[in-house]
Amino acid sequence: MNIKMDRTETGLLLALPLLILIAFVLPKWVVNYVQVSLGTGLVALGVMIQMRAGLVSFGQGLYFCVGGYAAGMLAKFLGISDLFLLLAAGILAALIVAGIAGFLLRRYREIFFAMLTLAISMILFGLLSSTEELGSTDGFNLPSATYLGWAPEGETGRLTLYTFTALVVVVCAILLNRFLKSPVGYINEAIRENEVRVEYLGTSAHHAVHITYVLAAVVSSIGGVLWALALGHVDPEMTNWTTSGQFVFISILSGTGNIAAPLIGTFLLEILRVYAVEISPNTWQMILGSVMLLTILYLPKGLWSLLTTRKSTKPSDDSADKISVGD
């Protein structure tokens, strides 16, 4: 594999120390939102790489939840709290579930892919909501993470988890960036443009979609593990369609132009919500909705285009295509 880094990757690597520094400089509550945003941001990333292939998953919460519950159940029933084992469990669970579901889902495109992913995630929601051993809709709590036998507590524990979260997220982002530039990544773009031609060129679109789907599941699951550990709690709400919907909205709002966009977008949206609630506790949804509309109207390529518009002065007409799913 090419070791040479592109701009995005250098940027991400440079951002890592900065991200970690934040934990020591900024107030705790902001760091908390950064941390949960890193977890959910990974899921948005999973949604985004599928969007590159023209696939919109309205059920990505499934893997967010699979990760969280895999880690949670390992802790609850086997008493394991080692971060690396929990991450491994999340990845393994996602590999199995996505590997199997992928055989079905890779045949679907457009709105039908969206709806089938939604249906599958809601079946898990129904199952978990009626399983009293796992706390039903109330979910259950997770212990604090340990690291190869080291069990930091209090402030140290918080900072350690944060540092690891930042590290894992940046590594995932870099690997995904590599993926987007790999042959499969380019095939995905071609699938979005015209799937029939891809097949005529002798490549299997199903194969590429399957790989992408599993990969997206794995990062989402990692996001789920990290988020659950930061929160110390999992519940079936993680796989509810409203949660999955949010990941899609974040990906669209942030734009699919760059791997870092969903991560930053998640945090910005979270902060927007916090202040909307503070300014107007009873009608914060209205503020959120209006900001979304204005963003779509003026930044059709997503927030990321704020950073790239200098390049081209073309009107937004054809730009809409790039965001998303072709038809």
Partner: peptide
């Protein structure tokens, strides 16, 4: 795009 329109209508729903 179709998906973008879903987001638009979601924002309208919130409002």
């Amino acid at each position: 795009d179709e998906v973008l329109m879903v987001l638009v209508t979601y924002a309208i729903f919130l409002i």
